[in-house]
Design a binder for these strands. Structure first.
Lengths: 212, 212
DNA sequence: GTCTATAGTTGGATAGAC
DNA sequence: GTCTATCCAACTATAGAC
């Protein structure tokens, strides 16, 4: 609520500038996210950005970190599986939720791929790409674990491995959807794959109908 | 063999310049592929590039087309499945071949994603991304068909749909491999998925051992 | 028809003012 | 400690020479 004009402490400036950078990056891509544009959008002079960030890469690192943070936040907001008794249902529910989040943020998804590519080209930014994946992996892994335990099931393989496969498929489907925009086909692919993934788990004990 | 110095007809210049652009793009990424760099690499003056290509986008379109052409060429070079009798074996063989081609061209794979992202951000270049996918799809589809017929099997679902799923998984696995460089894990994921895909087909008639 | 020389824009970085 | 004014490099594009 307070005024964000001038003479801000560096920490606040940084978050303000990262927000501006994120806006631009989502809307117009990483190539359009120049220091000048960020400064203009934030309403500060050009040099202010250079005062807060050592160089452009430094700004990108902060931007990537913000995206990862947002992703973590979104993942923890993910609702439970209601009262799904069946693992197949729980999985579908979880994956549908994931996909809904993806489909609602097309530009942000594209940005994620752009940042990955950018990070892979720049040796100094390699850790950014790795961190992106580590966080996504952990989120999917947690989702799979949760889906299993809440339906009294167990994964027959290391859940991290399953998560890696799910993540790969999710990435591939998302990329394809970014290109052709066919959400129906994407969901169909995802549903098929989810059914397949379900075979990696067994239900340990079947809950009786009226047990709750 | 002839001299490529000066006063070349436009068509030859174009292919020469696209080759130079490809070299730079593979080695340093799309962002580093500037008109100046291309001109310098090709050993021509800056304006020559602008004479051959309307603008930078025009050059990129030609570059993307070259990559697609190369991909088509590589796909048609793909060897058969030797004398695989079993569809599972044929599929593994085909997918291994695909993967080998991917793992041998890391920078080119990364470039493909960069071009996709670039094309998705630029409305005028959307068709480039679509064409990329159309070609890959067709190649995978042909491979699946060939694998089935050569082992006297048949896909129980439209082969294009299966190809789409394979392509998605392949994309996801490739992207992941670009980030973590773990070729062993990538192959393992791919093998698992291939085994799964095999369940989408049935073998129509089993060849007798000594029938050939 | 092919290429050269040059103009004009945009961008990252810094020295120094307040 | 925070910000302003300025510099210089790199890029795209074009007008015009050969």
């Amino acid at each position: 609520m307070d005024c964000v004009r001038s003479r801000l402490p560096q920490a606040q400036r940084r978050t303000q500038l990262v927000s501006a950078a994120l806006d631009i990056a989502i809307a117009e891509g990483i190539a359009a996210t120049t220091i000048r544009r960020v400064a203009k959008r934030a309403g500060v002079a050009l040099g202010v950005v250079h005062y807060c960030f050592a160089d452009k890469d430094d700004l990108f690192v902060a931007l990537a970190e913000r995206i990862v943070t947002d992703l973590l936040g979104a993942a923890s907001d993910a609702p439970g599986f209601d009262d799904a008794e069946d693992l197949a249902v729980a999985l579908r529910c979880a994956v549908d939720g994931l996909w809904e989040g993806i489909e609602a943020t097309r530009a942000a998804q594209l940005l994620t791929y752009e940042i990955t590519a950018h990070a892979l080209r720049n040796p100094a930014l390699n850790h950014v790409a790795e961190r992106q994946y580590a966080v996504s992996r952990a989120a999917v892994s947690a989702l799979l674990s949760s889906a299993a335990t809440s339906t009294r099931s167990a994964w027959l393989r290391p859940v991290d491995e399953v998560a890696d496969e799910v993540l790969a498929m999710l990435d591939g489907i998302t990329l394809r959807w970014l290109v052709d925009g066919d959400g129906v086909a994407a969901r169909a692919r995802l549903a098929r794959f989810t059914d397949y993934v379900r075979t990696y788990a067994k239900t340990t004990r079947r809950r009786r109908k009226g047990s709750a």
